[in-house]
């Protein structure tokens, strides 16, 4: 199992809609190009997630699934999470974790093959 199989994306700015769509496209391209098995999206810098950004996160997760990769969204601020519930956005199908470390654990577990030895050796 290589950490190189994962892409880490950290969203640092309040993105306008076209930028968000460009990021979604860019990520999808990179998953396809690198054959990454997992994507970690760190949104801890985002102070607002509206239905557009929410849809972009859900679409990215869905696209990555088609490309045999798992997306985990990490670091959602509590105020954002509370607001999303009232907005009515459930983010179904998007895996979330509290922070990057826990997100990585989720990803490792998600891509672990059933035939893998318990000590972590990966048959090639």
């Amino acid at each position: 199992m290589k950490l190189g199989e994962f892409l880490l994306v950290s969203i640092q700015v309040d993105m306008h809609d076209k930028l968000a769509l460009a990021l979604q496209q860019d990520l999808t391209d990179r998953i396809a190009a690198t054959g990454a098995r997992g994507v970690l999206m760190d949104i801890s810098a985002l102070e607002v997630v509206d239905s557009f950004i929410g849809r972009m996160l859900a679409n990215t997760a869905a696209m990555s699934r088609v490309l045999d990769a798992t997306t985990v969204v990490v670091g959602m601020r509590p105020a954002v999470a509370i607001t999303l519930v009232e907005l009515g956005l459930s983010l179904n199908g998007v895996r979330t974790a509290l922070d990057v470390e826990r997100g990585m654990q989720l990803l490792r577990a998600a891509v672990r093959q059933p035939w893998e030895e318990p000590d972590g050796d990966t048959p090639v």
């Binding site: 102070e47 607002v48 997630v49 509206d50 557009f52 601020r77 509590p78 105020a79 954002v80 509370i82 607001t83 009232e86 907005l87």
Partner: peptide
Amino acid sequence: VDQTKIVTAAS
């Protein structure tokens, strides 16, 4: 939380 709610509505 109130800031986040009204900013999200505004967006």
